[in-house]
Design a protein around this nucleic acid. Structure first.
Lengths: 216, 216
DNA sequence: TAGATTGTTAATCGATTAACAATC
DNA sequence: TAGATTGTTAATCGATTAACAATC
């Protein structure tokens, strides 16, 4: 049955705002999270309208308390629930270059529900090397690792000309989603979710702002 | 005078779309860029409405040709001009961890007008080490490097609890913008542009989609 | 209670899309 | 020329904000 459970897809922009709230409510280093926050306080922190904050929180089912605001733990746990941070899943990193190694060793993923159970690379001189807590494995081992650990996400940090082929192998191995850090677009089956991480978008914005500054 | 030159600030979403067009027009590996493209073709590639593509291109001053479309080189060079890719600027990377090293060695930045002239870290065991084409320098050298090379951007890849202090040092050294890869927010003077790179937003979206998939 | 804050409806605003005339 | 495509105005749509009643 599950009435009440909103089953329509949440907009990308909403997810982004939720992550923004989550982030601020987790507290800055040194400043602990207070017990309750008002929508106005959140809004000021993230430079938004307080009505939108209340709408967003209502959309994910958090109830506020008149005269008090929202309880931080309730907000945080609702966001965790909606974003799926409490639904742990496993991933592999493919491409053991500098970026791949950095991601494979990043400590912040665990608390968001993502585990990394393998680091892969096909370069013979890399296979077998230790990288943080990982030993670099060859691509032939991918299907086995995916099966044994129930891996659902492949994080791709391979050179552009290899990305499509590696993506195909990951899909064939049974992964459900791809996080692509290469600047190439991918062709994948419809039931595989692909997220591109466009670092150049960030650079574009910086470049634009810097050239504006120097203009005057 | 400079009439005609649109001086109002371009929206973030527009910059993002422009980067998206730029990306596709640069061509996928193997598929060379055709001489001309129609707004409909671009729209299909990036899954958008063709009218919006024409509006965006008009906004940055590219004229199309009825019955022909847009000349790829004109579009590319207009985007380069607007985003400031032809206005080269220098940057430094602060924090020589895995991510910092990866960014300092990334070859794709040069063609977008960004140079990296220094890699900094305060850990005594890192200072002096070679990392790609960089030698890791201590923070005390930052002001000199910034001055000598006219550095305008600081790329921050230091641990969260050090980010604010490092940002202060960078600002004091005279940089004009900060690209922050740590998950902490920063307090900076109004004339310093800060761009946060939120990797957790990407993870949030993947996590959300994966938990939706497994839901049914 | 009075007052602060939520929750929600209505109004506004901006961005996207549709329609179509202009162009080569 | 006929037809494909641009450029632009008008219509639509959705998202944000304003207003205010409900709540504790």
């Amino acid at each position: 049955m599950r009435r009440g459970s909103t089953n329509r897809e949440l907009k990308h922009a909403l997810l982004e705002r939720l992550m923004h709230y989550y982030h601020f409510l987790c507290g800055q280093p040194g400043a602990p999270t207070p017990d309750t926050v008002t929508s106005t306080e959140i809004a000021r922190l993230v430079h938004m309208d307080d009505t939108l904050v209340r709408k967003d929180l209502a959309a994910i089912g958090v109830r506020g308390h008149p005269r008090v605001g929202f309880r931080s733990v309730e907000v945080l746990s609702a966001i965790r629930g909606v974003l799926g941070f409490d639904t742990a899943f496993e991933s592999v990193v493919i491409g053991a270059g500098r970026l791949g190694s950095a991601l494979a060793s990043y400590p912040g993923f665990a608390s968001l529900g993502m585990g990394i159970v393998g680091l892969f690379d096909n370069a013979p001189q890399k296979v077998g090397l230790t990288c943080g807590r990982h030993v670099i494995q060859p691509m032939v081992s991918l299907p086995t690792v995916v099966r044994n650990h129930g891996v659902s996400l492949a994080i791709l940090t391979v050179p552009p000309d290899a990305t499509q082929e590696v993506a195909d192998q990951a899909v064939a191995a049974g992964i459900k989603a791809i996080w692509n850090f290469a600047s190439t677009s991918l062709t994948t089956p419809d039931d595989v979710f692909v997220r591109h991480e466009h670092i150049s978008v960030g650079l574009a914005e910086l470049s634009y702002q810097l050239s504006r500054m120097s203009e005057q």
